[in-house]
Design a protein around this nucleic acid. Structure first.
Lengths: 239, 239
DNA sequence: AGCTTTTGGTTATAACCTCTAACGTAAGTA
DNA sequence: TACTTACGTTAGAGGTTATAACCAAAAGCT
């Protein structure tokens, strides 16, 4: 037969084309339904042809995940940039809204990011954590605009984080806020992942205020004096 | 042939036996590796035999999920019961520790609970949300021990929740705390799911203080006056 | 131009999987 | 004892990933 080759049909962006089809199928038929064969069929090409472009299902998957992280980072950066003039608080709120919006608009991709695929904790795993970093950096950036005057002495997790900060290419001005960023991310992730699985819908509440509230308390908690001082991460968890 | 039948080998608990094998395989070879065939092989029985006891792979999966919810609820209830004398705060902290411990000790089961399987939002989905409720009730129970003196007027999400509370068999005394419970759960879920996927380990921090801290701020936030008053879920998210 | 090498596809095949169908035996019941 | 139901068997349809072997088209070189 030798029908039109992929190369001529999608010059220079075959991998992208494959990934697009993959995302479509993923959105329609669930996360476990991602099938190399089905993609090939839709591209009107026969089975193993795609193995010229992806080592296998897993590599395709991780490529999708990495893309997703990048895309999320871009969306967050945009949201942060839009509010450049305003206060860090409002920018942070915008960030949270953008995070939520991204997750809600493409839940399949969001789920993909946090789905562990291989039991093998090998090198490719580190590729994934690297991919996650830019998005985190956006959060850190916004947080580091908040003046850190009058800070109390760093807590244990904060000290642990300082070392990590240095080992990456992150500007060390962000260090005092790293823990905030992680807590915020954890909360947003908790909200988003519960929301896209319909847990808030099933009990009939609107999660939007929760996002706003979580941002507010993250700012509150790690502030110098205020009322949040009782609240500091105690002496290494009363195991 | 006619080797020993399952019935005679595991009288009265064939389904349980199958589920045990399933959990073992799930723990060892990842969540996608759960195979009816492989289970049958391990039980020294041939393929389709198991279809007498489970309608298919999906039913087995949902059975595992429901079991997991029940098991988690038991673990939480135990933790809550152990601290019966002490203050609600410490009981709540114990609850959080138990939640974390359960998730960390059996990550495969934890992941299972929050994994959406079928795109079909049918009746079996409601079976799953029903299964999740007992665990939530434990959290509500502990929270409702906290006196609600001097409460400010209920926020929008709280009002939304009140209706839901009435529709279930939950004692309405828990109503004022339902939002706290949901926020707490969301945070715990965020922490746990990030932890079991190794996100904290990869940046080298110990998540234990974070759990404690999140419990503390949940209590802080929804307290009458204090410093948390600025923190209330704003006017329905500035969309 | 012509020859050679690389590249991008093809089909065939192995080894899995889920699940249905058809069939026989073992066990319980009238 | 005869009948019926329950339980397990093999066979098979249709799906998957992934490898192997092969072939044609395009690109590079002289």
């Amino acid at each position: 037969m030798t029908r039109d080759r992929l190369r001529s049909r999608f010059p220079g962006r075959i991998r992208d084309e494959v990934k697009e089809v993959a995302l479509r199928q993923l959105a329609e038929h669930g996360p476990d339904a991602l099938s190399i064969n089905a993609i090939a069929r839709e591209l009107d090409v026969s089975g193993p042809a795609l193995y010229r472009y992806f080592a296998g299902r897993d590599e395709l998957l991780t490529a999708l995940i990495i893309d997703a992280y990048g895309d999320l980072a871009r969306a967050l950066a945009q949201a942060a940039a839009r509010g450049r003039g305003r206060s860090a608080e409002t920018r942070l709120r915008a960030l949270a809204r953008a995070y939520r919006a991204w997750a809600v608009e493409q839940p399949h991709r969001y789920r993909l990011m946090f789905r562990p695929l291989l039991p093998g904790y090998d090198a490719h795993t580190s590729a994934l954590v690297d991919a996650a970093q830019p998005a985190m950096s956006v959060v850190l950036d916004v947080l580091s605009d908040i003046p850190a005057e009058g800070r109390r002495s760093p807590t244990a997790p904060e000290r642990e984080l300082a070392g990590w900060i240095e080992r990456r290419d992150i500007p060390t001005t962000a260090a005092p806020h790293a823990l905030q960023a992680i807590v915020l991310w954890s909360r947003l992730h908790g909200l988003a992942s519960l929301e896209i699985d319909g847990n808030y819908a099933s009990i009939g509440i609107d999660p939007a205020p929760l996002y706003a509230s979580e941002v507010a308390t993250v700012l509150e908690q790690y502030r110098p004096a205020a009322g949040g001082s009782v609240t500091r991460p105690g002496p290494a968890a009363p195991r």
